[in-house]
């Protein structure tokens, strides 16, 4: 059970364990796949073995782990921000905003803008726009409250989804096909520079979040509680909102929405490690990363050569485990 005061030793022990799990998964999953790869030949750079391993499989594993870690952290953050353990990275409409951007790009036929696909840029802009609307609606003067955020987030979410449905309805057949594909979400092999760019966005946000984790503990316990313990609550909320949206927006732009993970990973870890965000945030990153890498490995191999949308796997693998965890927890609680 969770010890209370967080000592550097416990911090290192718990995160060491999570990191080890993540590392193990990242070491093993690139060696699992549907196509036959001769690893000696791959290391010698021989086609197609080298390309399958280094250009198709490895980037996919890396992207899945980054995205999984990012979404789990975004889940923790939005749960603390909204003080609601049922919140997830999509509650505030950031990802539907991203979806709307992508759908618009598809409908208007926006194509390349040089090196970055137009659809990613449009999705990022959509996420930012949704965030601005939510923040504008939720703030009274300079103050913002969890409740008003939740309400305006849910509202913006439904409006944006309605617009997406409308656009899909007026789109051509090929367009609505592309829209549905995008809304299903999924991990694919992207180029290494995309992965590097995503990591460059995520790293500082993660460091900031761990650094401000004690404030998030107070915030999770209540805005007044935090304010009377010296936390600049409004500033913290704005920066948290920005951080969470940056994570969700950039990830969603590349992969489309991937559900469930941002909800269950933080929740499962909270049951196991307690609520302290200093542990919860980095642990969620590592376990989220491992979890999505595993889900994606199943998604790309189970029905090969077909690819299952990874959101299907997160729900199908994560759901039963989560139910078991809750049940187990209840038993312990009552006995």
């Amino acid at each position: 059970m969770a010890a209370s005061a967080l000592t550097p030793a416990r911090f290192a022990r718990v995160l060491g364990a999570c990191l080890a799990i993540c590392a193990l998964v990242l070491l093993v999953t690139p060696f699992i796949g549907s196509a036959h790869v001769d690893y000696q030949k791959a290391l010698a750079g021989e086609p197609p073995h080298a390309q399958i391993l280094f250009e198709a499989r490895l980037p996919r594993v890396l992207l899945a782990s980054l995205v999984g870690g990012a979404l789990a952290v975004a889940g923790v953050l939005f749960q603390a921000l909204l003080r609601d353990s049922l919140a997830d990275p999509y509650t505030l409409g950031v990802s539907s905003g991203a979806s709307l951007g992508a759908v618009l790009a598809i409908c208007l036929g926006w194509r390349d803008t040089g090196s970055i696909p137009a659809i990613w840029i449009a999705a990022l802009v959509g996420a930012a726009a949704a965030l601005l609307v939510v923040m504008g609606m939720a703030s009274f003067g300079r103050r913002v409250s969890s409740f008003s955020l939740l309400m305006s987030g849910v509202t913006v979410n439904s409006i944006v989804i309605a617009v997406i449905l409308l656009l899909q309805n007026v789109a051509t057949f090929a367009q609505s096909f592309a829209i549905i594909r995008w809304l299903m979400g999924g991990i694919d092999a992207v180029e290494y520079r995309t992965i590097a760019a995503l990591a460059a966005i995520l790293a500082p946000v993660l460091v900031y979040l761990v650094w401000s984790a004690r404030s998030w503990n107070l915030m999770a316990a209540g805005e007044e509680w935090a304010a009377t313990r010296g936390v600049a609550t409004t500033k913290l909320m704005w920066s948290g909102l920005l951080a969470g949206s940056l994570i969700t927006g950039s990830v969603t732009a590349i992969t489309g929405p991937i559900g469930f993970l941002g909800l269950i990973v933080p929740h499962a870890l909270r049951l196991r490690l307690g609520a302290d965000h200093r542990v919860l945030i980095p642990a969620s990153f590592f376990i989220g990363a491992a979890f999505l890498a595993i889900c994606d490995t199943v998604a790309r191999t189970a029905l090969a050569p077909a690819d299952i949308p990874v959101g299907v796997m997160t729900a199908m693998l994560g759901g039963p485990f989560f139910l078991w965890l809750l049940r187990h927890r209840q038993k312990r609680y009552w006995s």
């Binding site: 549907s34 196509a35 197609p48 250009e55 996919r60 092999a189 029905l303 090969a304 077909a306």
Partner: peptide, 29 residues
């Protein structure tokens, strides 16, 4: 493939290595 219109993995595409790729993917119009 197990479906008429499956999403496929890059890995399998590389392994099966087609001589011809016909791509209707960007043709939103």
């Amino acid at each position: 493939a197990p479906a008429a219109y499956p999403k496929i993995t890059h890995e399998e595409l590389l392994a099966r290595n087609p001589d011809v790729i016909i791509d209707m993917g960007d043709s939103t119009h």
